[in-house]
């Protein structure tokens, strides 16, 4: 029962379970979806290559560690630009005049900008919580942090946002 060999099916299960999380994590850090969709494959491929030696108990945080290493190995580091989309599917209402839509678009761009200006470690934690609705404990497990550290990073992100949105939008 101590056998650590990962079967193909188990591997598929792990992929199904962690694909979105890893892809999003890479996007949070790089703002580059093409890169995220390439690297997420490399991350899982690496796990597959090491399937004989992985420790089952730590697979989740191991995946995030591989992703982290692959991100920092990416030489080109450009200015971070997010392009988050709005996932709420609200039917256009009557009051949505061109003006209103314009304002909405501006606000959306502004939102992307503010998010990109949060320092990286705090930003990643903040986005995991907001976009994927993850609890602090889950974030801590994924990133190999304590819950306290996650809370600290969230606080820092909130401080930055507070300061930024004081200025008129």
């Amino acid at each position: 029962m101590g056998e650590s060999n990962l079967s193909r099916q188990e591997f598929k299960h792990l992929f199904d379970r962690h694909f979105e999380g890893i892809r999003n994590y890479i996007y949070y850090r790089t703002g580059d979806m093409d890169l995220a969709e390439d690297l997420v494959q490399d991350v899982f491929l690496k796990l597959w290559e090491r399937r004989d030696s992985v420790k089952r108990e730590t697979i989740k945080s191991y995946l995030y560690t591989i992703a982290h290493n692959m991100i920092i190995n990416q030489a080109k580091r450009q200015q971070l630009m997010y392009n988050f989309i709005n996932s709420s599917k609200v039917m256009p209402a009557e009051h949505e005049t061109p003006d209103f839509l314009m304002q909405k678009k501006e606000f959306h761009d502004y939102l992307n900008q503010v998010l990109a200006s949060i320092p990286e470690p705090d930003r990643v934690v903040f986005l995991m919580n907001r976009i994927e609705q993850l609890k602090y404990l889950e974030i801590a497990e994924r990133l190999g942090l304590s819950v306290k550290a996650v809370e600290k990073r969230m606080s820092k992100a909130l401080d930055i946002i507070r300061r930024m949105i004081k200025e008129p939008i």
């Binding site: 694909f19 979806m33 093409d34 995220a36 969709e37 392009n83 988050f84 989309i85 709005n86 996932s87």
Partner: peptide, 22 residues
């Protein structure tokens, strides 16, 4: 701040390829 936080929770990453595809 509250409206910023709840707006942020409505965001999603701009995925291009499906999970199955990848």
């Amino acid at each position: 701040l509250k409206s910023f936080l709840s707006e942020a929770s409505k965001l999603d990453v701009p995925a291009k390829r499906s999970k199955q595809d990848i």
